[in-house]
């Protein structure tokens, strides 16, 4: 155990204790550690962006091919001063426009189509005919039942987020009765999903708690052996 290990272990243990002090309520020591953490995280992210994205690009490509991004970066940096900030709007617009296009493409290719295909796969003729063909009627019926539950759950959960309502004179706008009923079923599925997600997050938090306590005891034990 060298000096850097002792020093690092001491800092890690100290920060852990100070963060745990939040269990007694919000306090100044907790806020100090959180501000240090934000500083370290922001500094780390900025340094990685510079070291791993910007510098390699500028070192590996000829300057002529970097004229366009350099122009945009220059415009973006005019936002540092309130007087020139308006010049940086086109650069922000480029980021937003391209980001929106990437988000649309990603949402369609990465989420919408795979999720629809995943939901439909329970009713896939190949899977069903394979199960029926092998005489595994129980498996085939199970597949159909699970598929039906997933179909109902997906449609009703989506319907829960349908907030279109008809306005009537002198009445509070209300959803149609059929949508209201479907949305209630969807609310049940969403409650179950959030319950399962809660359990997952809680398990992860417990693992983190155990890891932190273990590292604290470990550090104290190693320190005691040293003296």
């Amino acid at each position: 155990m060298n000096f850097a290990d002792i020093f690092g272990g001491f800092f890690a243990a100290l920060f852990t204790f100070l963060i745990f002090s939040y269990a007694l309520g919000d306090n100044a020591l907790f806020r100090m550690v959180v501000h240090i953490f934000i500083g370290v995280a922001a500094g780390y992210a900025a340094a990685v962006a510079l070291h791993s994205v910007l510098l390699p690009a500028f070192n590996s490509q000829p300057l002529s091919s970097l004229v366009v991004p350099l122009l945009w970066i220059g415009l973006l940096f005019t936002k540092l001063s309130p007087r020139t900030a308006v010049l940086g709007n086109p650069a922000s617009a480029l980021l937003v426009g391209v980001g929106a296009a990437v988000a649309v493409g990603g949402a369609i290719q990465g989420t919408l189509l795979p999720q629809l295909a995943g939901s439909a796969s329970y009713f896939s003729p190949e899977r069903l005919s394979a199960a029926f063909g092998d005489g595994r009627f129980g498996d085939a019926l199970g597949l159909l039942f699970n598929g039906a539950v997933i179909l109902v759950g997906t449609v009703t959960s989506l319907a829960y987020f349908h907030f279109g309502a008809q306005s009537r004179p002198n009445q509070v706008p209300q959803r149609r009765r059929i949508i209201e009923i479907i949305a209630r079923v969807g609310q049940g599925f969403i409650a179950i999903t959030l319950g399962v997600l809660f359990a997952g997050v809680y398990s992860a938090a417990l693992v983190a708690l155990i890891e932190r306590l273990d590292s604290l005891f470990n550090f104290v034990g190693r320190l005691a052996r040293l003296f």
Binding site: G153, S157, L158, I190
Partner: peptide
């Protein structure tokens, strides 16, 4: 199955929302 169905509904809703927001920008 149960939570998977709800999560699928939420994910499809999120992606539809993302597409709508993205198209509004575009």
């Amino acid at each position: 199955v149960l939570a998977g169905a709800g999560a699928r509904g939420i994910l499809i809703g999120v992606s539809l929302g993302t597409i709508a927001t993205g198209l509004r920008v575009l």
